[in-house]
Design a binder for these strands. Sequence first.
DNA 1: TAGCCACCTTGATCCAGGTCAACCGCGGAC
DNA 2: GTCCGCGGTTGACCTGGATCAAGGTGGCTA
Lengths: 246, 246
Amino acid sequence: MNAPVFNNRDCGSCPIRHQAICSRCEQDELDYLDSVKYYRSYDAGQPVVWAGDPLDFVATVVVGVASLSQTMEDGRRQMIGLLLPSDFLGRPGREAVSYDVTAVTDLTLCCFRRKPFEGLLKTSPHIGQRLLEKTLDELDAAREWMLVLGRKTAREKIASLLSIIARRASSLMALKAPDGFAFDLPLTREAMADYLGLTLETVSRQMSALKKDGVIQLEGNRRVRVPDFAKLVAETGDDAGDLFGG
Amino acid sequence: MNAPVFNNRDCGSCPIRHQAICSRCEQDELDYLDSVKYYRSYDAGQPVVWAGDPLDFVATVVVGVASLSQTMEDGRRQMIGLLLPSDFLGRPGREAVSYDVTAVTDLTLCCFRRKPFEGLLKTSPHIGQRLLEKTLDELDAAREWMLVLGRKTAREKIASLLSIIARRASSLMALKAPDGFAFDLPLTREAMADYLGLTLETVSRQMSALKKDGVIQLEGNRRVRVPDFAKLVAETGDDAGDLFGG
DNA sequence: TAGCCACCTTGATCCAGGTCAACCGCGGAC
DNA sequence: GTCCGCGGTTGACCTGGATCAAGGTGGCTA
């Protein structure tokens, strides 16, 4: 077991990989980490865990998209988070997860068994800090989303979702390109509806309306072209001040 | 500067106080902590910070209630969090705060200057762990709230809010009392509306409806009596499985 | 005692988005 | 090829909650 192996792991920006090449870490720790780290793959549509079930690992998304969602007894469903590559899944210190996790597209996770990971958190402050950082980001995103869910119109909701996915899928340069840019929508209309607190019919209608108004173009159902990103952002109802920001 | 002073600080369950009496901590750290810790008070209705303004401290709520909210340019407002005693405010590693913080009732915060606190996080893993724990709890609560905002009816939203406040204001024993229990509502109808993504008229109507149906009794506008907690929870639309849980 | 103001309630009407239903179009199985 | 089923679109109609408007109530000041 020697050092280089930690550097060519392809984990996206997973916090552990960062940790593995951190010069302040002791070698023992790295060896230990490597021994508990493994990969898991899921097909699109496949469940990762159900709400209430124990989750014996924590993980980061390497490739693909996963959704976190809650379902009421009568079937009403709300997506409460979308995990894109580099996002963290799982809760150290708690065995069960309180929402359903589903692979939206084909998905690969980089996993760590939960118990050893928790031990690591106690002894390695860097990992905890990194994780705290990520959790705070997620909290900010969740709060941002509460404004979308609580106060925005259907059209504004759609525009908000598209602009968020566009930002995460495209480089800053692409967003600013004068002739626009395109991206793939990893979600079905139904999944979009679940995320936005709408019905799929309303999603479909508003997508059509945004198309008719020239805010977006559709190249097939799942590919969106944005001729002018500022125009899309203007439809979100947000302050345009942070147009190219977080 | 001697040790006892750290033990009789009344900070609720503020993570620092816990830290201060933690046997694993070094005395230097405690002295340091004490030197950067101070209290701030706000009158009901007073702003603590506006979105985008720098916040030079992090804090925990000692007494009172604070709200976190976001406002759109046209005035639509969404409350995105409610801080009750022991809750944490502020974001280590970021200067500005992205939402308005307002004192809902008279409020006292236990504050730490941000820079020294960040230094402390680096050197004292216990504080970071404790904070991560709290942040994860807040994230869970935020996600729970997304279901409320996105999918629940007005009546279910009101019932959800009442049951959450009831849980935090009352002991487990009180919740189970066969003759019911009462609690003070720290929010105006307008603040409730902001939290729930409703108008204040709808809040008022649904409060009246719940009263008419015997789910709650009103002892004045701001005091709520719950004759049967299970009946209230049944109105939230949630699975009743965790009736007395988190 | 009156008058004011912040907070709350209630009524009448409107409309965004939900519901129900029909249909389209494409890819995969046979 | 043809069929089928899934994902998407569009239309017609309905309704829950928003909007607009008019009081009510209780605590404070003068």
